[in-house]
């Protein structure tokens, strides 16, 4: 069960049970729907953008623990950041999950997102962890069509 424990760390279980920023954002000016047809996960990301700054962000949806916790952690990570910073954070996060780079050097700069590093060992679940981020990208691009991780 050790690898499973590595994947389902306390922080992930906590964000799954009590997702942060889990609401509809009435004053959102960017929004996108994401869907992972493989497992039926759905997420909607709401963003209040002020110039280049992500003033507020929230999400709603239905998904597995990994996708829910990842969405929750993402909203915390990018709130108050610029669009550019958010996109860079996604790139780093994506690399963390998929690329064979030096993990430790990245972990320190990733903050709480590092809790999802265990997903690396479960390639089938990378899509769960990145669904919210793909959807955020779409929301920032203001794409109104639902994005898909397929």
């Amino acid at each position: 069960m050790s690898e499973v424990r590595e994947l389902y760390q306390e922080i992930i279980l906590d964000h799954n049970k009590k997702p942060r920023n889990y609401q509809v954002l009435d004053d959102a000016n960017h929004k996108a729907d994401g869907h992972n047809p493989l497992c039926g996960d759905r997420v909607t990301i709401y963003v209040r953008l002020n110039g280049e700054k992500i003033e507020n962000i929230a999400f709603q949806g239905k998904g597995c623990a990994i996708s829910t916790a990842s969405a929750s952690l993402m909203t915390e990570a990018v709130k108050g950041k610029t669009v550019e910073e958010a996109r860079q954070a996604f790139e780093r996060f994506h690399d963390l999950l998929t690329k064979d780079t030096d993990l430790l050097s990245q972990l320190s700069e990733m903050g709480k997102l590092a809790a999802l590093a265990g997903v690396r060992d479960f390639p089938m679940r990378v899509k769960c962890a990145t669904l919210a981020w793909h959807t955020l990208n779409a929301a920032l691009d203001n794409e109104e069509i639902p994005v898909s991780t397929e």
């Binding site: 069960m1 690898e3 389902y8 493989l38 497992c39 597995c64």
Partner: peptide
């Protein structure tokens, strides 16, 4: 209750148990 099938599948897999999780091509 409150646990997504995808999480069930991953954890059972670690126990050597292969089950299917998802919509089973019957949405």
């Amino acid at each position: 209750e409150d646990i997504h099938p995808h999480d069930i599948g991953t954890i059972l897999d670690q126990e050597g148990i292969a089950i299917r999780t998802g919509h089973h091509c019957a949405q």
